[in-house]
């Protein structure tokens, strides 16, 4: 009898649930409040739905927001789902690459300039890279224990521009200004000028379930070599001492030596501040060596 039981389970997957024939059960009431959910089907509709962003939670890929919603930690009045808003896609023209806000991280790998392409490959696993979007990554809140906005470093190094909508209408600004600003904005597109050279260096991950502890992005463009790091603090940041040393003619090792002065590393579940401070100059030197 037990043997037969085993055979059934092995040979007939799905035998226990007759798909299509089971009577639909009554859905449980999971939400004690009602959220007005907006699902725009064009960029214009998305901008109109977002308005000035007051009281609205934007869901692009869902990889950051959905756990907050499912756990009840986040209970928005309104939610804007961007999945059908037509904001995905990568185009390249006259040396400028335009990346739609809901372009999946996976699509950046091999299709965008370095070091963005390599950084995208550092994110999560195949499914997470397929679901997570560049816009969501750019908008990730600084996290105490997880460098979620890890594409921000290559975008800083590439001198990217962010086109966004919100109060006062649409505008395009540098990624530096966008990240420094505290306003509610709906990201529509990232613009990146093709760099002369770009390179990345990261602390390896033991497996795909881990965040990358720390990673350094370097790119040479119209403003010289820009260098940025993610994971050395709660958010990604440029390394001005390194950039200035390079502009002054320093070699990779010389420029990297002062990197720790630009950051205030922290202890967290991933690594200690000491480890971050110790490894940063080495990662910077490695990234510059790969340029």
């Amino acid at each position: 009898m037990a043997r037969r039981h085993l055979r059934l389970r092995h040979l007939r997957p799905g035998a226990w649930v007759r798909i299509g024939e089971s009577p639909p059960s009554t859905p449980k009431a999971h939400m004690t409040h009602s959220t007005n959910v907006l699902v725009p089907t064009s960029p214009e509709e998305a901008v109109a739905s977002f308005g000035d962003g007051g009281g609205i939670t934007v869901v692009a890929g869902g990889t950051i927001v959905m756990p907050e919603l499912s756990s009840g930690r986040l209970r928005p009045e309104r939610a804007l789902l961007l999945a059908k808003a037509g904001l995905a896609g990568i185009t390249s023209e006259n040396g400028t690459v335009r990346i739609g806000a809901t372009t999946p991280v996976l699509a950046l790998v091999g299709a965008t300039p370095e070091p963005l392409s390599t950084f995208a490959a550092y994110v999560g696993d195949y499914e997470i890279r397929s679901q997570a979007t560049i816009g969501g990554n750019v908008c990730a809140a600084p996290a105490a224990e997880s460098p979620r906005g890890d594409l921000q470093a290559p975008l800083l190094a590439l001198g990217a521009r962010v086109r966004s909508a919100g109060a006062g209408g649409e505008r395009t600004e540098s990624i530096d200004d966008f990240l420094a600003g505290g306003e509610d904005r709906l990201v529509l597109e990232l613009e990146v000028d093709q760099p002369t050279r770009g390179a990345a260096a990261a602390l390896g991950r033991p497996h795909a379930h881990n965040y990358t502890i720390m990673a350094v992005a370097a790119a040479e463009g119209a403003d010289g070599v820009l260098v940025a790091v993610s994971g050395a603090g709660p958010r990604a940041q440029r390394l001005p001492s390194v950039e200035q040393a390079l502009a002054g003619g320093a070699d990779a090792a010389g420029a990297a030596a002062g990197a720790a002065a630009d950051v205030s590393p922290h202890d967290d579940a991933l690594a200690s501040a000491w480890y971050r401070s110790t490894m940063l100059p080495r990662l910077v030197e490695q990234a510059l060596g790969r340029l």
Binding site: G61, G62, T63, M66, P67, L69, A79, E127, I128, Q131
Partner: peptide, 8 residues
């Protein structure tokens, strides 16, 4: 392939 827990 998608994580069903992350898809609204």
């Amino acid at each position: 392939p998608r994580r069903a827990c992350l898809v609204p």
